[in-house]
Design a binder for these strands. Structure first.
Length: 562
RNA sequence: UGUCCCAUGGUGUAAUGGUAACACAGCAGAUUUUGAUUCUGUCAUUCUAGGUUCGAGCCCUAGUGGGACAACCA
């Protein structure tokens, strides 16, 4: 991985780390962590955080842990743990040692809670959630202290043990830190640090019926793992004083983890909250977490995005504290950029129409050797059969075409890529007036690569083609943005689902691909010449090939005609 | 009538008191056996008002605008 390039400017987090290292803070160690809650699939916003945390560790010769923040057994599942690990690995990162779990620290966390009680810094509150919430008041008024706030240490300790032993029902009691009910920061108004929850935990089973809250568990888990820079998103900014309060009140070493907040990623034309993505999945609005239209890592993977393209994206969007909305076109630019170099070229006809070459011998089959990549010989080449009856794209023929239409029209010539120059002579139409056959003639002297003068002739257009008798059938799925509005969840009075794009998925079942694609496997990717980048879907079988369009090619012709 | 955070082209990000730059998007052109790629050119930026300074996008003050915070979620 790239070292920190002195030429390149540092983002504000890199700057902080550089300074900390220079000043010898925490013995100049750098240790970050990626701390997902296993209650959903990772999305592109998490990918930004992953690239940040793991990237920082690489750049500063440090380490990065993976830690599942699993303090809420009612929402968390092993399925999510597995998918998260798969996605991180796929993105190309390796965490330090084994994955960690906040649940690994439940015993220590409990001991620390007891310490707070014994130091007179925590108390058991018998009030309901509603009452406690009411007493906290609003940020602009002073809160009211709980009547249980001044219980004795002994009573608190006894009660807390009984909470742990399962003597109370859910919600009957909580443990609160005793801080300041008048703090202008709501998080300091005696925050709850343990609640009773009789739920089975995905890892600890039924061992516990009390679980620590995020603010208490997160910072202390950082502390236990020796994390130096605890990077999170902006909404945790107001939690930082509490993060520091726990560390100050529970530990007696010099070492201090530091929480740093950055602005989360927002992408235009999409939604990013786990809740909304879950809703799309459970409402069957999409086919699953890995629906190729989803901004999830698994969706992007299935769509044909490469790990490199996502890392490139994360690098280009930068890191700052300002709210931002990144244009999806930047994401698309990144895949195109990556795939342009990596994708073998192939020919596929999405909307076929037949071409008959009137002057071509009836049963002749010529094998045209065509490179997989024009600029990268190492990709090799394949043979593509050329015959009298071919398929071309229906949109590559136009009646009464304008001068700037560089494709087939009566009397016009076009290069059939890697084969001959053909001239369109006439067309046949069916009863409905649709074109059924395009009649052409070919010039034998113009065969590609033959070196003849005629073969070097320039014609304005080049189109792709397939032999009608050799081509394979395929299904092609075209995707468009899931939402038609740039900010689907940015409207106060309109639900984001109102902006769902009804044309986000188009299935073409009558497509043709070249015979060289007979043995493709899921995730194999190609550029279908002139059409875009495509990959093989997991639904694909030998009997029924299925391709996803990852992204179209830039199309200045289409743009010109808008 | 609180606390905290943020403010640079259309969108992002840089410039760390010394010529406001890079990318994406847009536009125009060259090349091209992919109307792709590549290449060239081009449009467009410091929220406002004061202050400090020889010099301010950067430091200070005030204002304006945006955001976060009032789950027994993370």
């Amino acid at each position: 991985m790239a070292e920190v390039n002195e030429e390149k400017s540092l983002n504000f987090i890199q700057q902080i780390i550089k300074d900390d290292k220079k000043n010898g803070k925490n013995e100049s160690r750098v240790h970050t962590r990626f701390p997902p809650e296993p209650n959903g699939y990772l999305h592109i916003g998490h990918a930004k955080s992953i690239c940040l945390n793991f990237g920082l560790a690489q750049q500063f010769d440090g380490k990065c842990n993976l830690r599942f923040d699993d303090t809420n057994p009612s929402k968390e599942e092993t399925e999510y743990v597995d998918s998260i690990m798969e996605d991180i690995k796929w993105l190309g990162f390796e965490w330090e040692g084994d994955p960690h779990y906040t649940s690994d620290y439940f015993d220590q966390l409990f001991e620390w809670a007891v310490k707070l009680i014994k130091d007179g810094k925590a108390y058991v509150d018998d009030q309901s959630a509603e009452l406690i919430s009411e007493q906290k008041k609003s940020p602009t008024e002073e809160g009211i202290e709980s009547p249980y706030r001044n219980r004795s240490v002994e009573e608190n300790y006894d009660l807390f043990l009984r909470m742990k032993n399962g003597e109370f029902k859910d919600g009957e009691k909580v443990l609160r830190a005793k801080i300041d009910m008048n703090s202008p920061n709501m998080h300091m108004r005696d925050p709850i640090i343990y609640r009773i929850m009789n739920a089975e935990h995905h890892r600890t089973g039924n061992k516990w019926c009390i679980y620590p809250m995020y603010d208490f568990a997160h910072g202390e888990s950082d502390y236990l793992e020796g994390i130096t820079h605890s990077i999170c998103t902006l909404e945790f900014e107001v939690h930082r004083p509490l993060y520091n309060w726990f560390v100050e009140n529970l530990t007696d070493t010099e070492y201090r983890p530091r929480q740093i907040e950055f602005a989360r990623l927002n992408l235009s034309y999409t939604v990013m909250s786990k809740r909304k993505l879950l809703e799309l999945v459970e409402g069957n609005i999409v086919s699953g977490w890995d629906d190729p239209r989803m901004p999830t890592v698994s969706g992007l993977r299935r769509r044909g995005y490469t790990p490199d393209s996502i890392r490139m994206f994360a690098d280009k969007i930068g890191v700052a504290k300002r709210e931002n909305v990144i244009d999806v076109s930047l994401l698309e630019y990144c895949v195109r950029e990556d795939l342009n170099n990596k994708a073998p070229r192939a020919m596929a006809i999405l909307d076929p129409v037949k071409v008959v070459i009137d002057n071509y011998p009836e049963d002749k089959v010529e094998m045209m050797n065509i490179a997989y990549h024009q600029k990268d010989e190492s990709m090799g080449s394949r043979e593509v059969p050329f015959t009298k009856e071919l398929y071309i794209e229906r949109s590559d023929y136009m009646e009464d075409a304008p001068k700037k239409f560089f494709r087939l029209s009566e009397g016009r010539e076009v290069r059939f890529r890697g084969a001959y120059i053909l001239k369109c002579e006439s067309v046949e139409k069916d009863a409905d007036g649709n074109i059924s056959v395009i009649h052409c003639t070919y010039d034998e002297e113009t065969r590609s690569g033959s070196g003849s003068e005629a073969s070097k002739r320039k014609v304005k257009g080049t189109i792709h083609w397939l032999s009608a008798s050799h081509s394979l059938d395929a299904e092609v799925r075209l995707y468009d943005r899931l939402f038609s509005d740039p900010a689907p969840d940015g409207h106060k009075d309109v639900d984001y689902k109102e902006f769902l794009n009804s044309e986000s998925l188009e299935i073409l079942s009558n497509c043709k691909v070249e015979p060289a694609l007979a043995n493709v496997k899921p995730l194999d990717f190609f550029q279908f010449v002139r059409m875009g980048y495509f990959n093989v879907d997991k639904d694909s079988t030998k009997e029924k090939l299925v391709f996803n369009r990852t992204v179209s090619l830039k199309d200045s012709w289409a743009k010109m005609n808008k």
